[in-house]
Amino acid sequence: MHIAVCIKQVPDVAAVRIDRERMTIVREGVQNIINPSDYQALSLALALRAGLGGTLTVLTMGPPQSEEALFEAIAAGADRGVLLTDPCFAGADTLATSHVLARAISRLEPLPSVVFCGNNTTDSDTGHVGPQVAEELGLPQVCGIFEVQPESLQTLLAKRVRDGYLETIRAACPVLFTVKGVSEPVLLPGLGSLQSAFSAGSIVRWGRNELDLTMDETGLTGSATRVWRLRAAPHRTKGEILTGQAHDLVKEILKRLEAMSLVEEEQIHG
């Protein structure tokens, strides 16, 4: 079985600061990490491959240094990496990003039977790329899974939590999964090795030409949306801040709970 995983390198958002005066993101000294839900996707893909055998290909689109994420994935057991990098890919919205990823996946041989993506990234958090890759590849999608097991040669059973229900879903291959909520994703660096990661040929680099894409299909020109402006989120002003005796403060909390019908209003007798 051939499994593909799409990952993205993101700044460790916990360390990012925002300069509210200049409306810029301060990235200095900020480490890049594999986007957390992509990391979880990779852990499920590795576990599935461990059970079924086969090849695991990791793809990432981004600037040249995104290669680090591929090294990390190969060190954890992926077989090869595809770095999708080209200056004209920059500024892509999810429509253009999913186009490049889908084109790259469609060029893999053999065609993957299962494609994994993280459910959403911590930097833009749209959750669009997985479903849009699935759409372009004509694959069914199952979003937000935290577990997947083979059921038969051609079908998989995945689990997800949706609207308070635990769902078990049967999907026939080929299929695309997006992953979130894996409680303890583990990548075992022992499975692969850094040596294999750095060995020749384990990572290929594809740009616009290799993927036969026109300028119009990629980056900002291939995007349907534009960010018009960035502005500081206004601080909420509707809130009130109360001080006083603990008893009175608790009464205020209870009033809110009553207003939301979370507790019944106190009955007044007599």
Binding site: V13, V16, I18, I25, R226, V227, R229, L230, A232, A233
Partner: peptide, 10 residues
């Protein structure tokens, strides 16, 4: 960016 900024998208 985690909600600290708002992006106006068109």
């Amino acid at each position: 960016f985690g909600g600290d900024l708002l992006a106006d998208v068109v």
